[in-house]
Design a binder for these strands. Sequence first.
DNA 1: AATGAATGAGAATTCATTCAT
DNA 2: TATGAATGAATTCTCATTCAT
Lengths: 210, 210, 210, 210
Amino acid sequence: MMKAVPKRLETGKKRPKNTKQKILVAGRRIFAEKGYSHTRIQDLLKAAGVSPGAFYNYFSNKEELFLELVREAGEALRESVQKIRVQGIKVGNQDELFLVLIDSIRYFFEFVDQNRAGLLILFREQQTSNPIIMDTLNLIISEIHRDLKKDIHTGIDMGMIAVADPGIAAWGVLSAISGVTLAYLNNPKIERDKLIQTLSELILLGLFRR
Amino acid sequence: MMKAVPKRLETGKKRPKNTKQKILVAGRRIFAEKGYSHTRIQDLLKAAGVSPGAFYNYFSNKEELFLELVREAGEALRESVQKIRVQGIKVGNQDELFLVLIDSIRYFFEFVDQNRAGLLILFREQQTSNPIIMDTLNLIISEIHRDLKKDIHTGIDMGMIAVADPGIAAWGVLSAISGVTLAYLNNPKIERDKLIQTLSELILLGLFRR
Amino acid sequence: MMKAVPKRLETGKKRPKNTKQKILVAGRRIFAEKGYSHTRIQDLLKAAGVSPGAFYNYFSNKEELFLELVREAGEALRESVQKIRVQGIKVGNQDELFLVLIDSIRYFFEFVDQNRAGLLILFREQQTSNPIIMDTLNLIISEIHRDLKKDIHTGIDMGMIAVADPGIAAWGVLSAISGVTLAYLNNPKIERDKLIQTLSELILLGLFRR
Amino acid sequence: MMKAVPKRLETGKKRPKNTKQKILVAGRRIFAEKGYSHTRIQDLLKAAGVSPGAFYNYFSNKEELFLELVREAGEALRESVQKIRVQGIKVGNQDELFLVLIDSIRYFFEFVDQNRAGLLILFREQQTSNPIIMDTLNLIISEIHRDLKKDIHTGIDMGMIAVADPGIAAWGVLSAISGVTLAYLNNPKIERDKLIQTLSELILLGLFRR
DNA sequence: AATGAATGAGAATTCATTCAT
DNA sequence: TATGAATGAATTCTCATTCAT
């Protein structure tokens, strides 16, 4: 049975370039909007203006594209977090640490603004059922968690920080940051400066007034 | 003359249970395990020992069952949080508040242990794309958020709490709690007492040692 | 994303029974006509008057249906060949053997007439590239070949048969029979009695006149 | 003054070979390995080191390439068979015919060894559903069959051969030869001399010892 | 003539939902 | 009410073929 000759209804249309880029750009946007499992390949193709065949030239399936975006976003996130740590590590007392944390969070939210789609992809899929995606996400998150836990340990050794369990505290801090970030991403009207101030105080001082 | 042996020897066997209950019980478990979109109705029906036809006597579709479970879990969560608030509202100074908070969180984690499946359903779908589910979840979360925000305001008025933005602080606290809860649900080896202690300190005192 | 409610354009249509039988019957016919790889599931569905879902209730894919038909046809073939052997084994001299062979071949072609579709399925796929199908077919063929080789050995021991290599001779005889059978299946005008006579003579006496 | 070094140092390198030849060579190999429908043009092009565009300069589609290879193989086969006939036709008695047949079959299997790929292409597709391919194959086979039938008639007229139906006998002989050839192609360990001896005896003398 | 990215019809399979019994 | 076989729209992915360069 011969395959029918593809009909080229829109002959003359320009052959587009940078197909892979187009797919990645569209993927970031659509996955951020709809999440992994609600995104149909067709949606991606339409958004990227690309044919199924072209898509499968670059990615062997939806998961592969998604993982590429997850890794990319995860790497960016971790890099951004690393830069913050590098600054944080040098301080000598609580007052300085406070100022540095505020600066770091400010810096972080600049990054958030630059990477809305990527971060939404990361945050949306925290509870997906696809084990490969889960593994990739867990790797990213657990690296960040490990770093933060180490920092908390350092803070304890330096006499600046006191917590019952640094691992749990690290989860709490990370969750607070990511939760607030998600709220911010979903509601861009939130005032950034207040957010930064509040988050820093919350993390370092808690709710209590002294 | 012997009395006839009663025919229904299997009387002890569980009666044909309420079909709807069977569906709800199975639904809680399976949705918590796999999430909404990875749960196939067939699996659920198999787990419930119920036929498709019977299912559609009680729920007009998959979404409806899910929403019922979400609402149920959300209500339970909110109730549980309410009870904590009722206790918290009475305290007069920070020391008492601290003790009450520890108690409340302990209480909350008892609830968590009793409602693993329901809470996993809530947490898993935080970023689903189904608008109805999203709305339902958002309603639940935003009510809890609103309550917490109000409490923070009260704390501020009483001179016990100081934060730049109560709304953002409420998000931070909620996120920290739900993030740590999720970590706890996914890793039951986490020591509950340390978790409660750490979380309370983090929320009220932050990371800084005084 | 909810699945759309299937539209039942032909409501009122009778719900058909014996779906598996219908699929098997249609499969035999279509596979015999078109061969495995040119048969599209859709063709099968249409021929069987069955929906995709119903098909996948009984077979997990096209290959599974095909293998069931292959095994069925192979078993029937081998049984038929076995019956012929049982008769052939008892004869004491060449004249008797000749008569028995004619009888057996006659019997075989009655079987052929009863199992046209099944045999076409077997013969068509002798060179497929699907390894599972290949294995199944090879098993069937090699069992028949082994039996025939054994019979030739017996004939040699009894002093009735003389060949340089029983294995190769068995291939030659089998190929002659199956080739002529295929020609017969594709061209039912061939006169059966002449066919039986010619084939028997060819196998036992060769072309030479004595 | 030095003579300028000629620029094309790589002249020894094989010249940009005739693209069509490359395609034909690769096609023979790949089609023989995988059969028509399991051969993807891409694989073939890769094997040939040729681009899709170049391919379609020489063949208007996959089928056309295949048919060219089928015809080529068919022609070679028929030629080879013709040569055998030319020799066979001259003999005067059965003993001579026997020797000539052995020689011819030996010659044929030398041809088989030289044309494995082509013959596999022919034999693999004996039952394809593509009507054009079928027609081409049938034409080749039926010409050979016709020739053989004619020869059998001649043998009958000369009093050397006796069969009930020359057409059927020709099918039987052809099938035996092609079946054994296929077995030989798929299992090169088969001893050629025994094969030739066995096949010749089978065809001329049948299984019976005299 | 050659290149190779792009095209898109087509094929297999899934699963929420229906409905005759 | 319950059953479960049947339905069919929807989805992913393939690969022969095209065409701008």
